[in-house]
Design a protein around this nucleic acid. Structure first.
Length: 321
RNA sequence: GGCGGCAUAGCCAAGUGGUAAGGCAACGGUCUGCAAAACCGUUAUACAUCGGUUCAAAUCCGAUUGCCGCCU
């Protein structure tokens, strides 16, 4: 009990009613933006983007960011909140997005969480285990150690420190091996013990989670067409502009789909056609991974974006209208 | 019409008598502070078709079909 109280922002304690939020999730290119805007209009709501790329300023075309016009029609939160070289993560997203939900709640505005970053949505709704923020130096030293002594050395250490996590993490998964060791160094406790205590048990909201889906071939076709349109809209210029502004190709943001492909082309590797094909392929793969993520979530109710009537009815009854 | 070459998974392709490499694409999955990231798994009872030789054929022989070259 006490853990829940400490985790809730203090200002919300005066709110007796549990905030209701509608989540619109699904793979990239399915039409979340349009559906979200239509619903926000219909229910006088506002949109909270749940997208790990839309947070970046100056990255508009390649991220398929809602246009200025769209954002004028309906207020959008959590878009353009950091520069491409600033760090951001799921914990920050969790904290800020919850704060916004509570603000909207105070004003009586229904929040529509629209996006495709599964972890961000989960972090917002169910929270993450509490830890001190990652220390860049620890992470860097662990990465260096991987280079010098090999990943297996770290994995062996994890086996000793936290056999449970080692059993769950694949020996090739550098990302999670490092994270597990880092957590131990930061908190003095194993990441598996944190997980056990937390178990995504935070539960401050009443949530209606709608997943948008259509036949795979149609989705892929849309993705291909959308990529072509991005190119016509000047995606290449956008990437050139980011490089000119001094944003390094090594940045997380610049390593994302599309940006990394065009950076490579600008660097003289491969033709434009090759870059575009890879961009399409990687976007399709990304959509597939998103589907895998959301399919595993039993809370998701799947609907076709063409089924707006049904979606609206579900939301009406969710809000007791 | 004649001669020669080639036919292996959705695509590229290795294999030249001993029981089908690999790559790409595709598909399935994992995910607790980098998540558009990172990681894992699956994918030809079968080598154009039919027949023959052999203990054993994708591999050798013959015929057929298709494709590609060259010649008339």
């Amino acid at each position: 009990m006490h853990s829940i109280l400490t985790a809730i922002p203090a200002r919300t304690m005066k709110n007796i009613k549990i905030p209701k939020i509608v989540v619109i999730c699904g793979p990239t290119g399915i039409g979340k933006t349009a559906v979200g805007i239509r619903l926000a209009k219909r229910f006088y709501g506002e949109i909270l983007s749940a997208d790990s790329m839309l947070i970046y300023r100056y990255m508009d075309i390649g991220t398929a960011k809602p246009s200025i016009e769209e954002r004028t029609q309906i207020p959008h939160h959590l878009i353009d909140i950091v520069d491409p070289d600033e760090s951001f993560n799921a914990a920050a997203y969790s904290r800020i997005s919850r704060e916004i939900v509570f603000q909207l709640q105070d004003k009586g505005i229904p929040p529509f969480v629209v996006g495709g970053t599964g972890l961000y949505i989960k972090a917002m709704i169910h929270g993450l285990f509490r830890s001190t923020p990652p220390d860049p130096e620890i992470r860097l030293s662990l990465k260096k150690e991987v280079e010098s002594s090999g990943l297996h050395t770290l994995y062996e250490r994890l086996k000793v420190l936290d056999p449970e996590s080692a059993g769950r993490i694949h020996p090739h998964d550098a990302f999670r091996i490092i994270r597990a060791l880092e957590t131990f160094m930061l908190t003095g406790k194993t990441i598996s013990s944190h997980h056990q205590r937390h178990r995504f048990s935070e539960d401050f909201f009443k949530v209606l989670k709608i997943g948008l889906i259509r036949p795979r071939d149609l989705l892929y076709h849309h993705i291909n067409v959308r990529v072509d349109r991005m190119m016509e809209m000047g995606f290449l210029k956008e990437v050139e502009g980011l490089l000119k502004k001094g944003f390094s190709p090594d940045l997380k943001s610049m390593q994302s789909i599309g940006y990394r492909h065009l950076v490579e082309f600008i660097g003289g590797n491969g033709s434009m056609e090759e870059a575009t094909e890879k961009l399409k392929r990687d976007t399709r793969r990304f959509a597939k991974r998103q589907l895998t993520w959301f399919r595993a979530d039993p809370e998701v109710i799947w609907k076709s974006p063409e089924n707006m009537d049904e979606i609206e009815k579900m939301i009406e009854s969710f809000f007791n209208l």
